[in-house]
Design a protein around this nucleic acid. Structure first.
Lengths: 199, 199, 199, 199
DNA sequence: CATGAATGAGGATTCATTCAT
DNA sequence: AATGAATGAATCCTCATTCAT
């Protein structure tokens, strides 16, 4: 069928993706309200009505971007459950690996991350999800005696998310640190603490 | 009679303060753009032109709130430099005391905190200031051998600010934890780390 | 009566005059709409309600200034009727004298002139009055054979007013010419024309 | 069918021109401040946002009208340089022809003229340009001995512009005189003066 | 004579969104 | 698949003017 390959939808798909990409940029840089549909379509070489061919509203495309971010993030964390029975040295690197994958993901999707992790109202909920996930992991490891028994792991998880948040903005997105470096620093700090045990 | 005589201008002052209070509430809850001047003045029992009697624009009052927050915050952290020559136990409680005062301050000024620490574009800068301050303190203590020599204290500071940020939103503002509890948890986590040293 | 001279009204009179003077300046410089009552009273060291102690509205003070201008102008032109039976040389200087008095008057009341002769809607009417007056004079002199019989004196009068208007703005108010100079130039041009009668 | 095919954009052009025409009317009649965008668009059968489809602000459309006037005026005066070597009778009719074209232009563009020659702040500058142009012409003719040597031609030019100004308002726009009549009267007055040379 | 405080009324401008083609 | 044209619905802001003291 259709040997002349009037590749149905390909143009539209391209337009839609152009809009999505540019919108992500704009939202990430200027926030929701300061981003104008007019600007997006202009940058995409389209007109305003075309926008509504692909998205039902400004709110809708914003949600779509958030959803994409959230979806990818969930997918990412799905496989990161730490297997039991590993010795302490390996634990550290396991944790580091998890953090690396998060930072890498953020690094690879800067605009989406800005939107879904920092700008959106839903960011709070997304973080809550991550905190829950991390808490679970930590609890398991706590149970396995890798971690101190007297710690409130939910609070720990919040601290880690907070750290990730900050470092993403100030170190990762400024290109001052790599995912690896950041992950290692976090592991080092949280695992062993600040206290000087020498002397 | 009235021992304070002809309270010149007191009415206007009251109106201005009413506007400020309500504006803080609104901005904190709805953000800059979703906050309407009309709503603010209505809640203050005034009309729109009155607003402009006290503030030159919506932007201006927002800035004033940010400034107030920043100003108070700076004032707070001014006295918090840790004195040298204290043993380790005291150090912990010293640090805790600093954190308590921050959480207390945030707790006492929830709206301002939401605005100046979470909503404003300037929040980033304000946090940067706090990070710098904390970094300084940490470095001094590191020099005094209280802390491990191999840690990048700026990164540590970022982690702490991130933790404060998160815990403020999820534990403090939800009334799930007190400033004391949060401060203690942070000290415990960051000073000693997660690692189980028993066994 | 009243040896203590609580000069009744003197303060008010002073305030009113201050307002009038400043208002004239402002209207002259910025026109009606761009002149704000708030600016006037500020410059007069008063508050807005005080303004309404002396003038019923912005429109009212503007009218008062126009009226003052018009009144003075009418007073000026009342005595300027040219007496009959003068020879041609004297005629020229008579006319010049009339023009000098007008230019002097404009020069002495620059703000009022700007308002009443250039800014006000009523300026048109005021000019019409002057044209009528000049026309009358010219007609008398035409009847006395001093002027050409074939000229439409109303048109001539319009031309003279037009000349006065322009020269007031471009030469008088810029201090490039004195009333005398301008009057002489006008007399010279209009009496003898441009045409070179030599050769 | 339809020899001009798919008239792309013709509707928008029509709307823009409608707005321009009506705006010229309104500005001419009521001045800048008393002219409301709401009135303009209402008369054009449009809504307020449509106005901003074609003009960026009220100030902008006003400037556009002024510019149009100025542009046309400059175009008009470009060809009006008087060629040398003409005898006196022809000179008069040459000058008359120039004046006719000006009055005709003003007559054909009453609204624009009101705006650009009487209402706009830029009117002064526009007149200055005309004065300069006229002065140049007069000087050339003076050099060629057509005009008296003792006259300050800039002042003469100012007088002529003043005359044009006045006569435009009082005779042309009231339909009391035609461009031809006005031009002839001016030539007559300025060339030969008022003085009765008979007797 | 004067003012601190307040407001009614309106006006320009913006932006997401839609209609007809 | 796309667009020229248009708009509904707000929002910020301004200014002359007034009231109570």
């Amino acid at each position: 069928m259709g040997q002349r390959g009037r590749q149905k939808g390909s143009v539209g798909v391209k337009s839609k993706e152009a809009i999505l990409t540019i919108a992500a940029e704009e939202f990430a840089e200027h926030g929701f309200h300061e981003t104008k549909i007019s600007t997006i379509v202009k940058k995409a070489g389209l007109t305003q009505p075309s926008f509504y061919l692909y998205f039902s509203s400004k709110e809708a495309i914003f949600q779509e971007l958030i959803h994409t971010f959230h979806h990818k993030l969930i997918h990412l964390t799905k496989n990161s459950r730490i297997e039991p029975n590993l010795d302490k040295n390996i634990l550290a690197s396991k944790i580091a690996r998890g953090l690396i994958s998060i930072f890498k993901f953020f690094d690879d999707h800067r605009h989406l991350t800005k939107i879904g992790f920092f700008i959106a109202d839903e960011a709070e909920e997304i973080k809550r999800g991550m905190v829950a996930h991390i808490t679970e992991n930590l609890l398991a490891e706590q149970q396995d005696k890798y971690f101190r028994q007297d710690l409130n792991m939910q609070i720990v998880a919040e601290c880690i998310i907070g750290a990730i948040e900050r470092l993403t903005i100030t170190k990762l997105f400024t290109n001052e640190s790599t995912p690896q470096q950041l992950a290692n620093e976090i592991v080092d700090i949280y695992l062993y603490g600040l206290q000087n045990t020498e002397s």
